[in-house]
Design a protein around this nucleic acid. Sequence first.
DNA 1: TTTTTATATTTGTCAGACAAATATAGGTTT
DNA 2: AAACCTATATTTGTCTGACAAATATAAAAA
Lengths: 255, 255
Amino acid sequence: MSIAIKPLVTESLSKQIAEILREAILNGTLKIDEQLPTEYELAKKFNVSRPTIREAFKQLAAQKLVRSRRGPSGGTFVCHPSNQDLNSSVTAAVMMLVNTGEFSLSNIAESRRELEKICCRLAATNRDDQNLSQLTTELKIQKSPELNDEEFCASDVRFHRAIVDATQNPVLKFMMFAIIEALQPVTNLIIFRFRKREIIIDQHQKIYEAICNKDARAAEQAFSQQMDYLCEQYRQAQEWRAQRDREKVIKDREK
Amino acid sequence: MSIAIKPLVTESLSKQIAEILREAILNGTLKIDEQLPTEYELAKKFNVSRPTIREAFKQLAAQKLVRSRRGPSGGTFVCHPSNQDLNSSVTAAVMMLVNTGEFSLSNIAESRRELEKICCRLAATNRDDQNLSQLTTELKIQKSPELNDEEFCASDVRFHRAIVDATQNPVLKFMMFAIIEALQPVTNLIIFRFRKREIIIDQHQKIYEAICNKDARAAEQAFSQQMDYLCEQYRQAQEWRAQRDREKVIKDREK
DNA sequence: TTTTTATATTTGTCAGACAAATATAGGTTT
DNA sequence: AAACCTATATTTGTCTGACAAATATAAAAA
C-alpha cells in the first residue's frame, strides 16, 4: 500500500484565504478600488463560514490592502496602501530591529554616514526653493534658545528629512525617511547630554549653505564633519558609561 | 442644553483592541514570548465576544506580532517578527510602489547607482571568505550557457545580494535587500532583450575581483561601469519603444 | 421641490456549540 | 522499570444563526 502523502495544508483557513486574496491584489487581478464580493458570497464561494472570511479580511485590512464600509453600496474594497502607510510600516520595522538590538549603534552610524552623504550630494544638485525654505525654517527653530531638548531633537529629525526631500528621488526618500525617523532618535538619546547645540547648529548651517549654493562637494564634506563630531560624542558617551559601570562594581563590592 | 460631545470612537472594536495590544507589544509592556490571556479571558476582560478578540489577534498575526498554538500550554504569544519577516514586508512595500508607478525607472536607476556603489566599497573592505564563495557560486552559474533568462536574472539578483551581504552591515542589508529584490527584476524586465550576458558577466567578474582584492576604489568603479552600461541599454530600450509606438500610430492611420 | 421616513443591504458584533490539535497524566505492556 | 499507548483537559479553529449599526436608495409626506 503506497498512498501519496499529500503535504497536508495545516495553515488556518482564514490565513489561506487571506493569502489568496493578497496575491490577487498584488499581482493586479483585483484592481484598485474594485469591490470584493460580500462576506456572505465569499463564504459560499470558498465554502467556509462568514467569520472565517472576516478574519481573512482583517488580516488584509491590517496590511492596508482592503477597507470596508457598511451599508448598501458598502462592502469591502481593494485599496492599495498610501505611500505614507507603507512608509510608517517600514519605519516601525526598522524601529523594532533597533529595539531588539539587531542594529548596533556603530552599524547605524556607518550606514547613516554613507547614505546621508549621498543625500547631501544629490540634495545640493536637485534642491528647489521650497526645500531651502524648509531647511531655513528648521534652522531658525533650532537657534531659539528657549527650545527644550525634545523639541530640538524633533527639529533635528525634520532638518535631515528635509535634506532627503531635496534629493527629489522618491526611492531614496522612502528608504531614508524610515532610517532617519527610526535611527536619529536612538542616536540622540545616547549622546544628547554630550553634544553641544551650537556646534550642531553651526554644522547644519554649513550643510544648508552648501546645498543652497548647489555645491555638492561642500555639502558632502559638511555632513561628514557632523558625522565625525557625532561619532566622537558617541565614543565619549560610551566611555562615560564604562566608567559609571566600573564605579558601580566597586560600590557593589563595598557592600 | 450643552452636552459635552464626546469624540465618539467609531473604529471597530477589534481594531481598537488590536491597537491597544500592538502598543503594549511595541513599547515592551508585553514582553517577547509572553503568553497573552486566552481568547475567552480577554473577551471577558474587554467585555466583548470571542470572535472580536479573534479578529484583533488576526490583525496582529498579520503583522507577525503574535503567534497562536492550539492545545493546553497553547495560546497566543507575543512574537516580535523575525528579520526576514520584516524584510519581506518592506520588499512588498517597495514592489507596490513600483507597481503603482510612484518610482520611475530613472529614480530607481539613480538610487541604485548611489546606494550600491557604497555597498561595493564597503563590501571590498569588510568581506569575508564566505561572501567570496557566494559570489563565485553565482558567477559560475551565470557562466553556464544553458541557463534560461529567468534563471540568469535570479542569479543576478543573488549576486548583488551577496555584495550587500559582504558589507556586514545589517542596516544596509535590511534596506538594500528590499531595493534589489524589488527593483532589479523591474530593470531586467525592461532591458533583458538588449543587454548581452557576456558583458554583464564580465562586469560581475571585475566587481568580484575588486572585492576579492579588497580594493574598494576598483569595486566602486567596476560597479559604476556596469550601471553606465545598464543605463545605456535602458536608453536603447526606450528608443526602441518609442519607435514601435510611432510605427503603430502610422499603422493605425492607414486603417 | 424639498424634507423626512421607511427599507434593504452590508458590515460589525454576539452567543453557543463542536472540531482539531496537543500537552499532561495515568494506565498498559514488555 | 521503561517504553508505549490512551484518556482527558485545555486552547485555538471553525461553524451556525442571530441581531445591531451604518447607510444608500426609494418612497412618502410636507
